[in-house]
């Protein structure tokens, strides 16, 4: 294993082990020793977060672990980001994400955002309790390809449907792919309201989003 590979492995493990300090230390080592910052994010931190996503899907990790792992990832990214050489070739796909109107629970949405970012998306986070028209407006403004909608509350499910209705009414449905998810959402509900895909959790949301823009 080369020194660079060692650092990638270390960064990945620091994320999985929720070790923010180690992630910072190794990210700094990448910078100091002159290795490529983008590679370190991709093969180190993101790879670690992918493993975290797997552990979450397997119910080894839950929300507190996921949050701590993402803190470690972000601590590393913070240090590496200024050193990324601009990649001309890479196409950045944009996702507009938010919690639908009537719901202020945003833990799930934040996790999806993290997973999407670590999967290479440009994520426009509208926040929580967002009216239907705001999603459509933001998606157009930012030239997004995907609109991601979340809710934890059954009572906010009609507000999720409303986003699809606005898209239909304004004849813009064909312009965007719509991903839905959250505690009470089911594949059947996603189909009923005309969403493109249902994601059962954050890791799957990122995976499906990549498929949608492939």
């Amino acid at each position: 294993m080369t020194r660079e590979e060692e650092l990638h492995k270390g960064l990945s493990e620091a994320v999985v082990d929720m070790d923010e300090d180690l992630a910072k230390e190794l990210a700094q080592a990448v910078v100091d020793e002159g290795f490529d910052a983008y590679e370190a994010i991709d093969k180190g931190l993101s790879a670690g977060m992918e493993e975290v996503g797997r552990l979450y899907e397997e119910e080894e990790y839950f929300i507190p672990e996921l949050l701590l792992c993402s803190d470690a990832m972000y601590a590393g990214i913070e240090i590496l980001k200024p050193h990324i050489k601009k990649r001309e070739d890479a196409v950045r796909h944009t996702v507009v994400i938010g919690v639908v109107e009537g719901d202020t629970h945003d833990i799930g949405k934040n996790l999806v955002k993290i997973m999407l970012e670590s999967a290479g998306f440009n994520v426009i986070d509208l926040g929580r309790d967002i009216p239907a028209v705001e999603f459509v407006k933001a998606a157009e403004e930012h030239h997004a390809e995907i609109i991601a909608l979340a809710t934890l509350m059954t009572t906010a499910m009609p507000a999720m449907r409303e986003v699809l209705e606005v898209l239909e009414k304004e004849a813009k449905r064909g312009n965007f792919k719509v991903v839905v998810g959250g505690g009470p959402i089911s594949p059947a509900f996603a189909e009923k309201i005309g969403a493109d895909v249902y994601a059962v959790n954050a890791a799957e949301a990122a995976r499906l989003a990549r498929e949608l823009v492939a």
Binding site: P64, L68, I107
Partner: peptide, 11 residues
């Protein structure tokens, strides 16, 4: 803060 509190259950 709920995000912080969830992390502190561990940290």
């Amino acid at each position: 803060d709920p995000m912080t509190f969830l992390k502190e259950l561990r940290k």
